[in-house]
Amino acid sequence: MTSLLSYLTGEDGRNILSGLINTCILWVIGSGLGAIFGFLIAVARRYGPRLIDYVLQASVEVIRGTPFLVQIYLLYFGGPYLCLSLGEASACLTLDPFEAGILGLSVYGAAYYSELFRAGFEAIPRGHVEAAETVGLDRWQTLTRIILPEMTMLVLPSMVNMTILLLKETAVLSIISVKELKFQVDIIGNRDYAFVESFTILALVYWALVEICGALGRAAERRLSRYRFAHS
């Protein structure tokens, strides 16, 4: 059995590192965009017209109700058949694997993040908003000064959780040949029939990333812990 460490040096090491970097890029951009889209969805559903709420609700249900693997297949292989024509010009959703990966991950994340934000909105006591109203804050000021900061503090722990889940979902992207960590490790494993070694490396690296993410989350929570709701 080849030593684990030998895979971390030379050509293999460089490939694993480049896979790791790609995984991190996919993860950070995917969850960042996912959180932004998710937030916009939650705001649109809460403050927008009823029809928009229904449409978004249905979309969120579909995404939450189907495996990410299936979604990413449909997006990558089905995308090119999705065309929009305006007069002469027409454009199809033809994406390279990396683009499809980022888009898929963002949409998948957005569905879950939007539900977190919605729960966060619901959890803010109505009285906090009414207090803002009685001292004369307008709707925008109430949103930015009161609702958003309070919601951030309420949803932070579940946001960290969801972000960790998204990291693990990036491994699925290897099936559309995104050159992320699992893709690179697969190549080595197949070449040397060293599946145990390569997947051990894979597990350890994901675990390390999850721990880093968890530690950042806990640090942020500690900073916010003083803001915890005063019991009343």
Partner: peptide
């Protein structure tokens, strides 16, 4: 207006709660 449940904003200090509308409004 003063409420039964106080309704202070938990992410602001006592001073922040009192100063908020003085600045924004």
């Amino acid at each position: 207006m003063v409420f039964q449940q106080f309704n202070l904003w938990p992410h602001m200090t006592a001073l922040g709660n009192v100063a908020e509308a003085l600045v924004t409004v």
